[in-house]
């Protein structure tokens, strides 16, 4: 499959996305939002040693992506989010909007706050005692800090850099994600369809169908990572966060997972942190470039890569394809 096909296939799928997945209240809320398009973040004053380039006519690819981005409702909205670790400011007043049906890639040099920002979206930063936060994060119009953390994390799932299946069987890894806290253990028979569905969506089912009770840690790294994705999407979250999901994997597993991300965005909003600019270019609809905690640039993939507004962005992405 050529990269072009990989891109187009999910587009068609997104167009066919079932409308009933958008619940009525959320639709009402979405209607109240004035601008349905991407939120333009307040661009921070950054030293530009050159005037921004005039916007060239959008390339064909860019316009395709823009159409797609418009298709989904807004899921997450960040308003002036700042994160401090003690005296150190790791994320500085970032505003962003994340839509269903699109993949947002967070890029930037090491230590610029990508992981911190990502972990704030499901409130994992709260586990760090020194971390403090300012600003608001809205999930479907609700402040995520008003939600119980367990509820929020059921709706905003996460995949980590290291594949980290639990020391149990493949089936139980996914079933564990589906079991409610307080309720009685549902029987295996009840969970089985959901588990299989999640494994199938993660593109793993065919490889493990005969070995569902085998230990998850026996899988290869790439299979483990897809199991982690299955585990994360099994409870049908609205947003999927991924922190360098392919950095521990070989090129073939990486390709499988990139393809998977393209398919998943049909009914999810996906945020991917990546150091691999070519990967960001392949999989993302929107790109946010961070530098030393600042959100320097946020826009469609084509715009950020082809016509970056800021010099820093140009320098950073220039290294990738220059």
């Amino acid at each position: 499959m050529s990269p072009e096909e990989m891109l187009l296939d999910p587009l068609r799928l997104a167009a066919e996305a079932e409308p009933e997945r958008i619940q009525p209240q959320r639709r009402i809320h979405a209607a109240e939002q004035p601008g349905q398009g991407p939120v333009v973040p307040p661009v921070r004053t950054i030293v530009l040693d050159r005037a921004p380039l005039p916007a060239p006519p959008p390339s064909e690819r860019a316009s395709v992506r823009t159409q797609l981005a418009g298709a989904g409702p807004e899921r997450l909205r960040l308003e002036e989010v700042s994160i401090d670790y003690g005296p150190k400011q790791a994320v500085k007043s970032v505003s962003l909007s994340i839509h269903q049906g699109e993949v947002l890639a967070l890029i930037g040099p090491s230590g610029c706050g990508k992981t911190t920002l990502l972990r704030t979206l499901n409130r994992l930063t709260e586990l760090t005692p020194s971390a403090s936060r300012a600003g608001r994060i809205m999930l479907d119009g609700e402040d995520i800090h008003e939600l119980p953390d367990t509820t929020l994390r059921g709706r905003v799932a996460m995949v980590f850099q290291q594949p980290n299946p639990f020391p149990m069987s493949i089936f139980d890894n996914v079933a564990f994600a589906l079991r409610e806290q307080s309720r009685k253990r549902p029987r295996r028979r009840e969970l089985e369809p959901q588990v299989i569905e999640a494994l199938r969506r993660a593109g793993l089912y065919e490889e493990v169908r005969d070995n569902l009770d085998g230990p998850a840690l026996r899988l290869s790294g790439g299979q483990q990572q897809r199991l982690c994705i299955a585990r994360a999407i099994a409870p049908r979250p609205e947003v999927l966060l991924m922190d360098e999901p392919c950095s521990a994997l070989d090129p073939i597993s990486t390709k499988t997972i990139e393809k998977l991300i393209g398919e998943l965005r049909r009914d999810l909003a996906v945020v991917v942190v990546t150091h691999n600019l070519a990967q960001a270019h392949r999989i993302a609809d929107k790109v946010a470039f961070m530098y030393l905690g600042d959100l320097i640039e946020y826009g469609s993939t084509a715009q950020v890569f082809d016509e970056p507004r800021a010099t820093r962005t140009r320098d950073y992405v220039g290294g990738a394809f220059g």
Binding site: L124, L127, T151, R153, G154, N164, Q181, P235
Partner: peptide, 15 residues
Amino acid sequence: VPDHMREAAFALGKT
């Protein structure tokens, strides 16, 4: 046990 194992469970909404 690496911290990301715990966080993986927390990230699934587990207590």
